[in-house]
């Protein structure tokens, strides 16, 4: 339905084919978070890999920073309809985390857990083969607190709530278990190109 009198800013320009349906490009970086912004001291920071309830490996901040660091440039898409193009990230790919722990594929599903109690589910296939990382830097600088620093998950091909801020672990689960927003009305998978915003999209 055409809205009377609306013509739009038409922000896409030449980049239109990089912008999923219903999204618009921003230059700034909006912040959306469900609770207070946590303060996490890297001296206390720990990252735990679990298979079900069982921890298989724990890294401290310095151990985690000693893992291979990978740089990527990606477009990111928030479910609140903003997209940001060509963002630069640096961190440890999920492939490298699993390799360091000697873990291959205990199940097909993963829950990301965070210091503030947040969680989000992502199928393993969407985390491996270089598709995702635990990001420690943004545009060459330590990741700002508001945006999940010191470390957040980065799964840029899914809506950005999947890229859980203040991450402290990954957990393999038997089934695809909904995380925080997935239990509160948001889509279980969240593909921006299929506009999977809400539960039954």
């Amino acid at each position: 339905m055409v809205t009377r009198g609306f013509f739009g800013r038409n922000s896409g320009g030449n980049e239109a084919d990089r912008i999923p349906p219903g999204q618009h490009v921003v230059d700034h970086w909006p912040v959306l978070t469900a609770g207070p912004t946590p303060r996490i001291d890297t001296a206390e920071w720990k990252f735990t890999l679990k298979i079900g309830p069982r921890p298989v490996k724990v890294w401290t901040w310095s151990e985690f920073n000693a893992l291979p660091q990978t740089k990527v440039t990606r477009d990111i898409h928030c479910v609140t309809t903003w997209s940001k193009l060509d963002t630069n990230w640096e961190g440890v790919t999920v492939d490298d985390i699993l390799a360091d722990a000697g873990v291959e594929r205990p199940s097909d599903f993963v829950l990301a857990h965070c210091f503030d109690g947040y969680s989000s589910n992502v199928p393993l296939a969407d985390l491996t083969s270089g598709k995702a990382m635990v990001a420690l830097k943004y545009e060459g600088q330590p990741l700002p607190r508001d945006h999940g620093g010191p470390a957040r998950l980065l799964v840029p091909h899914l809506y950005f709530w999947k890229s859980a801020k203040w991450i402290n672990g990954l957990q393999f689960t038997e089934r695809d278990e909904p995380g925080f927003w997935e239990l509160r009305g948001y889509h279980i998978y969240g593909d921006p190109w299929r506009e999977q915003r809400y539960t039954n999209d």
Binding site: V2, T3, F6, G8, R9, N10, G22, H24, T81
Partner: peptide, 14 residues
């Protein structure tokens, strides 16, 4: 809320 321009361009906000 979803607004649609004559050329099909769509803007959505909460």
């Amino acid at each position: 809320v979803r607004l649609t321009a004559p050329d099909g361009y769509v803007a959505m906000r909460s």
